[in-house]
């Protein structure tokens, strides 16, 4: 079968595309962020704690079920907050209602 391939008109595999521009872009995005963070408290930890405090004033929740995630893009970053609430209303919620 391999010999047949010699005669086929299939082109030779293209060389791998240059990867240096990807390295450069990844570094630029990462370092722009890391430089801003230097010497500052961890922003995500801070957000997580304050969101947790705000929500738990009204709803009983398990602190382990609060996930704060950040996805950084070149121009826009997204902050994703995922809080799992128990189905049974907690005492605080009942009291508030």
């Amino acid at each position: 079968m391999n010999i047949l391939r010699l005669f086929s008109s299939r082109p030779a595999p293209a060389p791998a595309p240059p990867s240096a521009p990807i390295a450069r872009e990844r570094l630029q995005i990462l370092l722009a962020h890391e430089r801003g963070m230097r010497g500052q408290p961890d922003l995500l930890m801070l957000l997580r704690e304050e969101i947790l405090a705000a929500v738990s004033r009204h709803v009983t929740l398990d602190p382990d079920k609060v996930i704060v995630r950040m996805d950084r893009g070149k121009n826009v970053s997204t902050l994703e907050v995922d809080i799992e609430l128990p189905n049974v209303p907690g005492p605080k919620l009942a009291a508030a209602g």
Partner: peptide, 16 residues
């Protein structure tokens, strides 16, 4: 390798 775009160039490193 830098000329083939397989390695960060000197300019890339210095700019960063």
């Amino acid at each position: 390798r830098a000329a083939r775009g397989e390695m960060l160039s000197i300019d890339d490193v210095l700019e960063i």
